[in-house]
Write a protein that binds this DNA or RNA. Structure first.
Length: 443
RNA sequence: GGUCCCAUCGUCCAGAGGCCAAGGACAUCGCCCUUUCAAGGCGGCGACACGGGUUCGAAUCCCGUUGGGACCGCCA
C-alpha cells in the first residue's frame, strides 16, 4: 500500500505538470532482487491504473555507467577504498562517522588493490558544521555533518549501492522530483553530497509520510494483510483503492466519493500534503469500495457474479431479476467477492427456521404460489400475490412476512422476498414451503 | 544510545494570530423510511498531548516536556 501510494503521488504529480512518471527497479542488490517481484509490482500498478510512462533500465544493467561515476568520484578524492571485511565493524571510529580506511595513502591503497585485496568504496563525507537540504514538504532540514558516516558507494563484489546508483540514474534520467517515503529522508543529505562532489544538479526532494498500521507501525511491505496483491485477490475495486490512497496525506482528495485518476491528476498538488503519518483504516477504505459497488454498471456486476446464481438446472431467472437482487445487495458490499458471497447466502437456505412454529396459513400460501404459472414467476407478481394474501389474512405485515421469510430462506432477514423468490425459482420456493408444511422438524 | 521527522474527533483531512464556544468525510449511535436487513434521509456523540512564553488576542508563532515514528547496513 505504501509503495502504491508513493507511485500514485508520483503519477499524479507528473500528470498534473505534464511531466513523465518514471519507474525504475532498484535491484542493485542482486542477491535479493528477482524478476518476479518486478512483474508483480508492475501488475499491481497496472491493476490500479497507475502505469509508468517509462520503465527505465534496471540499475543492475547500468553497472558500467555507475563504475564510471565511481571512478570520477575517486579522481576527485570524494571516494576511497576500504579494506575492512564486510562484517568487520572495527573500521568505524566510535561515535563519529569517519572511517579508518579514509586515511590510507593513495599509493598504498593502489598497491593493495593491485595485489588482489578486496575492498569496497566509501564516500568521503565532508567534514563541517552541518549539512542542510531542502525538502519540499518540510522546508530546510539540517543535520550535523558528523552524523553522516562514510557510507558505502560500491561493494567489494563491484556492485554499487542504492545511494550512488540512485543519484546517477536520477541525473541521467533528468529526474526533477524525487517523491518517496519518509524513510528515505536520511538519504537525501547523502545523495546531495554525492551530487555536490560531482557538481550535478539536485532534484527536488519530496518525502511523504509513511502509512502506518493500526498499531502505528510502518505498514509491512508485502505479504501483509494490507497489500495491494491481497486486496486484488479479494477483488476490491481498484478505483476505490486509488481514491482511498489519495486521501492518505493529501488534503484535497475527495473523501466521500470515488475520484478517478484523471480527476485526481487535475487537482493534485504537493502543497496540501500533510506531514503526520496517516494510519491505514480499512473501514474508511470500505466506504470507497461500497461507493464503487453502488454505482458500478449493474450489467458488469452481473457478469462478474453470474456463477453465484447457481448452475443452470433447467431454470434460470431472467437477468432483470438477477439485477434487482444485485441492486439490493451491492451497496452494502465493498468488494466483488463480498457481493458474490452475499448473493450466495441470499439465495441459499439458512438454519434459523428450526424450531419455529409453522403458521396455520402456510399450506394456503403454498397453494397460492403454486398457482402462479412459471412464465409469470416474477418478483412483481410474487410481491403482489403475497401482499394480496396478507390482506386476505388480515394480519400485520410483520406477522406475515417474517415467518414466511423464515421458511422461505431460513433466515430472519434479507432482500425483499419477491426478488429472492423470483431468483430462487418457483420450483425451489415451492419445495421449501412444502417441506416446512410436511416436515417442520426437518428444517 | 545518536540524528532527523511528526503531534487537531476512533480514522483521514480542514485550520497558514482574531471569521474556531474548531469544520468536513469515514466509522459509530439514535430517529425516519421499510415486511426484515441493507441502502437512503435527518440528527447526536466526538479532538486542538502537556507546560511555559510572545501577543490586546494562539489550534495557529517560539521554547521545553511527553508521546509516536524513521534512520543510523558491503538493504533499498
Amino acid at each position: 500500500m505504501g509503495g502504491a501510494r508513493t507511485a500514485l503521488f508520483n503519477y499524479l504529480w507528473a500528470k498534473r505538470n505534464g511531466g513523465r512518471f518514471l519507474l525504475r527497479f532498484e535491484d542493485t542488490d542482486r542477491a535479493r532482487s528477482a524478476i518476479c517481484h518486478e512483474d508483480s509490482i508492475l501488475g499491481d500498478l497496472k491493476w490500479l491504473g497507475i502505469e509508468p510512462d517509462e520503465i527505465t533500465a534496471r540499475q543492475s544493467e547500468r553497472a558500467a555507467r555507475h563504475a564510471e561515476v565511481l571512478a570520477l568520484l575517486e579522481r576527485r578524492n570524494a571516494a576511497y577504498p576500504c579494506f575492512c571485511a564486510a562484517s568487520d565493524e572495527a573500521g568505524a571510529i566510535g561515535e563519529t562517522s569517519r572511517h579508518a580506511c579514509r586515511d590510507i595513502p593513495g599509493n598504498e591503497a593502489r598497491a593493495r588493490i593491485a595485489g588482489g585485496e578486496k575492498c569496497c568504496w566509501r564516500f568521503r563525507a565532508p567534514s563541517g558544521q552541518a549539512h542542510t537540504f531542502r525538502d519540499r514538504l518540510r522546508g530546510i532540514v539540517s543535520v550535523p555533518a558528523d552524523s553522516i558516516g562514510d557510507f558505502v558507494l560500491s561493494r567489494s563484489d563491484g556492485s554499487v549501492t542504492y545511494l550512488l546508483a540512485a543519484v546517477v540514474d536520477d541525473c541521467d534520467s533528468r529526474v526533477t522530483h524525487v517523491i518517496r517515503g519518509e524513510e528515505h529522508l536520511p538519504n537525501a543529505p547523502k545523495q546531495e553530497m554525492i551530487c555536490g562532489a560531482l557538481g550535478w544538479d539536485l532534484p527536488e526532494w519530496v518525502h511523504i509520510p509513511m502509512i502506518l498500521d493500526g498499531e502505528r507501525h510502518k505498514l509491512s511491505k508485502r505479504g501483509g494483510a494490507a497489500a495491494i496483491s491481497r486486496y486484488r485477490e479479494l477483488e476490491w475495486p481498484p478505483d476505490a483503492i486509488v481514491s482511498y490512497l489519495a486521501t492518505l496525506s493529501w488534503a484535497r482528495a475527495p473523501t466521500d466519493r470515488i475520484a478517478g485518476l484523471d480527476e485526481l491528476s487535475g487537482i493534485f498538488d504537493l502543497d496540501s500534503v500533510a506531514l503526520a503519518p496517516p494510519v491505514h483504516d480499512e473501514s474508511r477504505m470500505r466506504h470507497f469500495g461500497r461507493e464503487h459497488m453502488a454505482r458500478a454498471p449493474r450489467r458488469e456486476l452481473l457478469e462478474a457474479c453470474r456463477s453465484s446464481f447457481g448452475p443452470d438446472v433447467g431454470f434460470m431467472p431472467p437477468d432483470a431479476e438477477k439485477i434487482s437482487l444485485i441492486d439490493e445487495l451491492a451497496p452494502a458490499c465493498a468488494t466483488l467477492g463480498e457481493l458474490r458471497s452475499s448473493l450466495e447466502t441470499e439465495l441459499g437456505y439458512g438454519a434459523d427456521a428450526q424450531g419455529t412454529d409453522v403458521p396455520k396459513w402456510l399450506p394456503a400460501i403454498l397453494e397460492r404460489l403454486s398457482s402462479i404459472p412459471e412464465s409469470d414467476w416474477s418478483s412483481a407478481n410474487i410481491k403482489n400475490s403475497l401482499k394480496l394474501f396478507q390482506k386476505e389474512l388480515a394480519v400485520k405485515g410483520r406477522d406475515f412476512f417474517h415467518p414466511l421469510r423464515l421458511f422461505l430462506t431460513g433466515r430472519p432477514q434479507g432482500a425483499p422476498l419477491g426478488i429472492i423468490l423470483s431468483c430462487v425459482g418457483k420450483r425451489e420456493a415451492i419445495r421449501r414451503i412444502g417441506r416446512a408444511c410436511d416436515e417442520p422438524n426437518k428444517l
